[in-house]
Every structure is written in structure tokens, then in C-alpha cells.
């Protein structure tokens, strides 16, 4: 529920108030829900806390999903991040958080759908990383989640957030766009810069199919959350550097929907195409479930 139907409107309202997208979204939510702003803020602060707990759960080296397909990779990444790696401890720590949240999800743990469970690692990988690495305050991080929420709500109303309807671009793509806008706000960028970051993130995820092996939110979903984190960071950094998207964010959202509609059903969360249909994908499905539906 959001009064605003376009990212453009969110930006305009934020600039009119001389504030941020998050403030516009928070005020609007409070009004829609008939609650005080502090109460709505408190709810979002709880979401951030759940994100922290998901990361903690997912970092357990012994964690495994029911299928046995996933678990334990976040712990490997965390250990590696401490050594620095190629991109440094910040980026590798962010990768570890995204993996941890998604692995927690695959093991039927508690997560925040952001915007969906399949894409739940991207906001913790980005916003929570900035907070945990001491680059912002808790309050800024919570507010950034409102910006993310505003962008996600627009995508949900103007396009779709369901992989079954629009492919992975509607889930990890939307999450990356939400995170990119949130990151820009966290680092003091303008609402317009946030919208450009959102547009650039969407552009870079357009066309991504939803092809989960055995229908499980594990392969390739968990690692696609990492890709979403990278897309979000790069889009935010470009926007903060003053780079603009030639195609406005709202038009990117429309393009996402159009591309989603053009995707065949086999690539929209039916586990019948893409990686799910590879020889190894089929073999894994048979090993986990035996013969199909019955």
C-alpha cells in the first residue's frame, strides 16, 4: 500500500519536502495504516533485527537445507572475507551476508521477504553491510529500508514481484533496484540519484529468468542474490558519481513487466527450463523427489 504509483512521483514529493524518499514513504505508510510514524519506524527496525538474525543463522557452517542442496557456503565466504580476497573484506563480507540470509531461507529459517524470500539476501547484503561496517547509523539503515520499500511497492504495483509471473528479474532484479536506491540515500545522495541507481540496477537484471532446480529456492537463487548485491553496489556507486540512466526508472519498470510477459512459462518458476532442465538439474530433481508430481 503506497499512495505513489511512480518512482518519479516519490522523487518529486521528496524534493518538494526538501527531504528523502524514505521520509515520504514513512509518512505515507503511517497515514495509510493509521499509525504514528514512530510505530511504523519501530516495525521496520524490527525487520532490520530479523535480517541480522537471519545472517547469524545462515553463517553456521553446519546449516543444510532439507534437500541437502545448500548450506555452509556463507561460512566459507566469511572465512575467506577475513583474508581480504580480491575485492577486499567489505565486498566479500557483503557476499557472505547475502549467502547467509539466502541459505537461512532455504533451510526454512526466518527471514524478511525483501521483496520476496527468493531475493531476501540482497538488502541484508547491502544495507546491513554498510551498517555493520560502521558506515552509517542504525537509524539511517532503518530509514533506507523505507526507500527500498517504496521502490519495491511501485515495482509490485506497476509490474510484478513474482518469479512465476515475471521471472527472476522481478525478484532479484527488484531487490537490486530497491537496494541501489537505499544505498544512494544512505550515502547522502539525492532522491533523483536514487532513482537513477534504481534504473541502472533494473537495466542490468532485465531478462533474468526464474529456473530453480527441482523447484527449490536454492540453485541458482542463492548465488543470484550475490549477483544482485553486486549490481546494487555498482548502480549506487555510478549514481553517486553523478552518472545518469538514459532510460528513466519508471520506464525500466514497464520494460521489466513487458519482458516478464514475453518470457515462456518454462522460464517462470516452473522448474521446466533453463538450469532446471539441464542434465544435472534433472538428475538432482530425481535424487531429491523421485518421479514428478503425484
Amino acid at each position: 500500500m503506497l499512495t505513489y504509483q511512480r518512482i518519479d512521483d516519490l522523487c518529486r514529493e521528496a524534493e518538494k519536502m526538501g527531504g528523502t524518499i524514505s521520509q515520504v514513504v514513512l509518512s505515507d505508510q503511517a497515514q495509510q495504516l493509521g499509525l504514528k510514524e514512530e510505530e511504523v519506524y519501530e516495525r521496520m527496525a524490527q525487520r532490520l533485527q530479523v535480517m541480522r538474525e537471519s545472517v547469524e543463522t545462515g553463517m553456521d557452517a553446519g546449516l543444510r537445507s532439507a534437500s541437502g542442496l545448500s548450506g555452509g557456503d556463507a561460512a566459507k565466504m566469511q572465512a575467506y572475507a577475513r583474508q581480504g580476497g580480491i575485492a577486499g573484506p567489505f565486498v566479500n563480507g557483503a557476499i557472505a551476508r547475502a549467502l547467509a540470509t539466502s541459505e537461512c531461507n532455504a533451510a526454512m529459517g526466518r527471514i524478511v521477504a525483501a521483496p520476496t524470500a527468493g531475493s531476501c539476501g540482497i538488502l541484508p547484503g547491502t544495507v546491513l553491510s554498510v551498517l555493520e561496517e560502521g558506515q552509517c547509523t542504525e537509524r539511517q539503515a532503518v530509514m533506507a529500508l523505507f526507500t527500498a520499500g517504496g521502490i519495491g511497492t511501485v515495482i509490485g504495483s506497476q509490474a510484478t514481484l513474482a518469479g512465476a509471473e515475471g521471472g527472476c528479474q522481478a525478484e532479484c532484479g527488484a531487490a537490486a533496484a530497491m537496494a541501489a536506491a537505499a544505498l544512494v540515500e544512505l550515502k547522502g545522495g539525492t532522491p533523483v540519484q536514487a532513482a537513477h541507481a534504481c534504473a541502472m540496477a533494473l537495466k542490468n537484471q532485465l531478462g533474468l529468468v526464474c529456473d530453480p532446480v527441482a523447484g527449490l529456492v536454492e540453485v541458482p537463487c542463492i548465488k543470484r542474490n550475490v549477483a544482485g548485491v553486486m549490481v546494487a553496489f555498482s548502480a549506487a556507486e555510478m549514481a553517486l558519481a553523478g552518472i545518469e540512466s538514459k532510460i528513466p526508472a519508471d520506464e525500466c519498470v514497464c520494460a521489466l513487466y513487458e519482458v516478464g510477459c514475453a518470457l515462456p512459462a518454462s522460464l517462470r518458476e516452473t522448474a521446466q527450463g533453463g538450469l532446471a532442465a539441464t542434465p544435472t538439474g534433472k538428475r538432482l530433481e530425481k535424487e531429491i523427489f523421485g518421479p514428478p508430481c503425484g
Binding site: 531461507n105 526466518r110 527471514i111 521477504a113 520476496t116 527468493g118 529456492v217 518458476e269
Partner: peptide, 11 residues
Amino acid sequence: MIGPSSSHTAG
């Protein structure tokens, strides 16, 4: 919510 899918679990 509890995972693994917002559409297929929470919904």
C-alpha cells in the same frame, strides 16, 4: 516470514 519462497510459502 519463514522461507523458502514468499509466493510459495508465505503467500
